[in-house]
Design a binder for these strands. Structure first.
Lengths: 329, 329
DNA sequence: ATAGATGCAAACCCTTTGCACATTA
DNA sequence: TAATGTGCAAAGGGTTTGCATCTAT
């Protein structure tokens, strides 16, 4: 069953020095009840059905008000007019836009965002916002089948994908640390890795419970298409790291370095997306994980340095502090 | 020194049943002389300087004509009006858009394009075109320094990056095959890998010569920012493959599989971008390489299967035929 | 009472179009 | 001489705005 989107507290959003107005309230409520991306005209039509005496100008003014209040976002699909989408508890995302039915579908890709940041950095360009739009024909239009009914809010999809990614990360993290513990020569190192593996195992079961609970909110949730794409989760980062441990001649120092690389990558990921949503299940999960990964990261760096000192060698650049995401540069 | 962009043969572009017109010629020529992304209004101003008596309507009509003829592309930077950019020998690309000076900078990213294709595939969406726009502040505006003068056409930048990528691929391919030859147990396999390494070495020197020649066309070419981003070149694909060969227990079969994965990736890359440009140096390089990688790929698959048969085992899925890029699905 | 919100119609901006006239093949 | 191309002005779609009126605080 479809969940109703959480409604924002309009009184709190209203900027100081502005008055309440029943017409605006009506427009905002009608807008928030809709799904998808409405043009000003669409909204005028919807409004006229409920109250004949609301003028087009007021609808335009209210749309602007919503954008300023952070309830709506103006989007441009190249049609020569703008559309508006919710932005309350609905983070920036990318779009697939069907040219034949004009429907649009949302997604997020951590991988694309990282690459975009790299490109911007390569040009010394300060990126404030990025737009990714894929134009084409959607499955429904191509096959003639009815479109999969909307239903799940992207808040829910975000939470689902957040948890899937967290679970995948824990699983491969567990594998990584278990293997690292097996190959570690230094007893202290073995101990550290073993402790990490234990932690991952514990978190994993917590997460799996939470995921099961989330699924109760929407029986079809599992079958809905991916909203948040992140390769680092399943086959990147820790999985790659575990793989790297299989190479010849990996010593304890190398194992630490690989672990540091992995934790840094996932910390970065969880932090970025954790900051994206407000007060949602997904946000919470992500921020918890970001924190956890940060702690792991610090411990690994500490241990790495300690081992280096014991071996009387100089630290390598892998031990620089936790980086901030490039977006905030 | 900046190279003048190659001018299209307008007579050839003119669709059948349309007449020549001196005013249109003037407008097209003025348009093609400009760089960057012009609004209709910008173009009207430029035109008025040369001939007072050309009307706004004609400019609009000519812009439409250029879009139809494939000389111009209509782009939308969310300003509430369209801009136009060259499209003659100028492939589709992505944009960095400076909100403070309204300049825009172009780039291409194979990595982003691949991810976009994956997202589309995951939703069974047929992608026809994708838009990636990074909005923010450019270096010139942020630092107050004058903008790096334009100069190089993206045709030249594309050729430069094409060659850089080809060279990086050859280098890591060479390393990969040399190492594979070293670890191969099967004498026939050792021979195959050695032959590949020789080939790579030969191509590498050809390419380096060609690159040197390209640089003569623009002394600053090397220092201009990256236009085409592709991670697979330097640290992906073969480099990763060579790395994989360092793992414990890599046998000849595994070496073939890794090689097949690498060749498939680079074949795919070279093919995609080779098809993008018309009659340019970059296009030629890329298509030659695509063909070369395809041959390597086929040989590796053949050898892999032969070895399997000799070892009396069943083929694994790695031996499926060369895939086409997802874009053409 | 007074600042802010609304309705109406006009104005705006960018773009397209109908029609008479000019050019080209 | 036909068929295209052009200029002009008008119309078109989407959006904003000036101003008188209404409404919340």
């Amino acid at each position: 069953m479809a969940t109703t989107p959480t409604l924002p507290d309009l009184d709190r959003l209203r900027p100081a020095g502005t008055k309440r107005s029943s017409k605006r309230d009506l427009i905002v409520n009608v807008f928030l009840r809709q799904e998808g991306h409405l043009s000003a005209d669409d909204l005028v039509d919807l409004i006229k059905r409920e109250d004949h005496r609301i003028s087009r100008a007021t609808v335009y003014r209210t749309l602007q008000w919503m954008v300023d209040a952070g309830v709506a976002r103006k989007v441009d699909f190249g049609e020569g007019r703008f559309r508006f989408e919710h932005s309350y508890r609905h983070p920036r995302h990318f779009h697939l836009i069907c040219k034949s039915c004009n429907r649009s579908y949302e997604f997020l890709s951590s991988d694309i965002e990282s690459l975009v940041e790299e490109v911007a950095a390569a040009r010394a360009f300060t990126a404030r916002q990025s737009v990714v739009q894929i134009y084409g024909t959607c499955e429904a239009c191509r096959t003639g089948k009815p479109p999969a009914e909307e239903g799940a809010t992207s808040e829910l999809l975000f939470a689902r994908d957040a948890m899937r990614i967290a679970i995948a990360t824990e699983r491969s993290g567990l594998e990584f640390y278990a293997r690292a513990a097996r190959i570690a020569k230094d007893p202290r190192g073995r101990n550290v890795f073993q402790r990490m593996a234990e932690e991952e195992k514990h978190h994993l079961s917590t997460l799996e419970n939470r995921y099961a609970k989330l699924l109760e909110q929407d029986p079809q949730l599992e079958s809905r298409p991916t909203f948040l794409f992140f390769k680092g989760a399943a086959n990147g980062l820790f999985a790659r790291g575990a793989d790297d441990l299989r190479r010849k001649g990996v010593d304890d120092l190398e194992a630490y370095r690989i672990g540091i690389r992995c934790e840094r990558g996932s910390h970065r990921f969880f932090k970025r997306y954790g900051e994206r949503f407000e007060d949602s299940e997904g946000k919470q999960i992500f921020l918890e994980f970001a924190e956890e990964e940060r702690e792991h990261l610090e411990m690994l760096i500490r241990e790495y340095r300690a081992l280096l000192r014991r071996q009387d060698r100089h630290p390598r650049r892998t031990s620089r502090p936790v980086p901030r995401p490039a977006a905030s540069r």
